[in-house]
């Protein structure tokens, strides 16, 4: 695993520290020995498909899972969420933006009334809360004429931004965001991410995102990849991509009647030891390999020799999405090999 943990001598302040976290419900282990830390002011993204364990980790950090269900060393703003006496303090130090706005907002009330309700939970004075809210609403471009209208009359994007503002109303050290781009249409997704980056820069708030939207990687300082409760990678976006063969250079091919058989032929390209292929469309696949520049022409020649009909070809640098897919694919293949080995050894024993 590529896990860029900050050493204790580092000047950066660690606001979340997790070491060997294991979470179980009954016999079922959900999280397996996960370790990571988050520095003040960073945006951290936890990526994984459904069931990877992203929400479980965030629930441990936000005091939603009882200590009896988890083990390990966990500190959030230097406080242990396993101790009930720390809950009020931790919850004062963190903000939370849930996936669904309806869980965060009173739709029949106005944005400013919602702000009042949530600010009062932190013992904030109304005047102070409204001043912060207005500043946040301005940063988030929430039109002033909507501030005193019921939320149910606002658009989905506006509701999402009000939800973010409420998460930040008490100026928390860390803002946890659960799938911040879910339910937002493709064009608006980038807006949401831009606003988060903007808030991070303007307020310096540490942000902890969990998402399966790979576009979110555009704004994160470090990205974690989770699968089946295991942390596969945790590093900066650029470090992860440059760890790919030829620092993430990728060749995209379009082949007529592409199928698994044809992809397997390409995988047998003899000149290179490290070759990775990934199907990205109906007739399109991408290839990453060592000595990309030297081997690309040889690969094309090999494909033609094998009778593959090439329709188009282009080259690019891999995005985080590709890294994620390749990493998950690699993990699946590894598991498949282990399973096959086990089956073979069982047959031999039999």
């Amino acid at each position: 695993m590529r896990c860029n943990l900050i050493s204790t001598t580092d000047v950066k302040e660690i606001v979340v520290n997790v070491e060997n976290l294991e979470v179980s419900f009954g016999e079922k282990k959900i999280i397996h020995k996960v370790s990571f830390n988050v520095n003040r002011g960073e945006i951290i993204g936890f990526f994984g498909i459904s069931g990877a364990g992203k929400t479980t980790i965030i629930r441990v950090l936000t005091c939603q899972i009882s200590q009896k269900n988890w083990t390990g060393y966990v500190k959030v703003t230097n406080l242990n969420p396993g101790s009930k006496k720390n809950h009020a303090k931790i919850l004062s130090n963190i903000g939370y933006v849930p996936q669904l706005e309806e869980l965060n907002l009173y739709y029949d009330l106005t944005p400013l009334k919602n702000v009042e309700i949530f600010a009062s939970c932190y013992n904030m004075k109304k005047k102070e809360a409204l001043a912060i809210a207005k500043e946040l609403f301005s940063i988030l471009d929430i039109p002033e004429d909507t501030w005193n209208k019921p939320l149910k009359k606002m658009s989905g994007g506006e509701k999402k931004r009000v939800s973010m503002a409420i998460g930040l109303i008490h100026k928390p050290d860390i803002l946890f965001l659960d799938e911040p781009t879910t339910g937002v249409d493709a064009a608006k997704r980038y807006d949401v991410l831009s606003y988060l980056k903007k808030l991070n820069r303007r307020l310096g708030t540490t942000m902890f995102l969990i998402t399966h939207d790979m576009e979110a990687a555009l704004i994160v300082d470090r990205a974690a990849i989770l699968r089946d409760g295991k942390l596969l990678e945790f590093d900066s976006n650029s470090n992860l991509i440059t760890s790919l063969p030829s620092k993430g250079l990728v060749a995209r091919f379009s082949i007529e009647n592409l199928n698994e058989e044809k992809i397997n032929i390409i995988k047998q390209f003899p000149n290179v030891s490290n070759i990775k292929t990934i199907r990205v469309g109906n007739e399109t696949f991408e290839v990453l390999m060592d000595d990309f520049e030297k081997n690309l022409s040889k690969l094309i020649q090999f494909m033609m020799e094998k009778g593959l009909k090439l329709n188009a070809m282009s080259r690019d640098v891999a995005a985080f999405r590709r890294y994620f897919q390749l990493r998950i694919q690699e993990e699946e293949e590894k598991e498949r090999r282990i399973r096959m080995q086990q089956e073979t050894s069982e047959e031999v024993q039999f």
Binding site: T62, S92, Y96, E102, F118, C121, H170
Partner: peptide
């Protein structure tokens, strides 16, 4: 009251 769960992520 749906936002109760969210309110519980404050000191309330």
């Amino acid at each position: 009251e749906k936002p109760i769960a969210r309110l519980l992520l404050t000191p309330v």
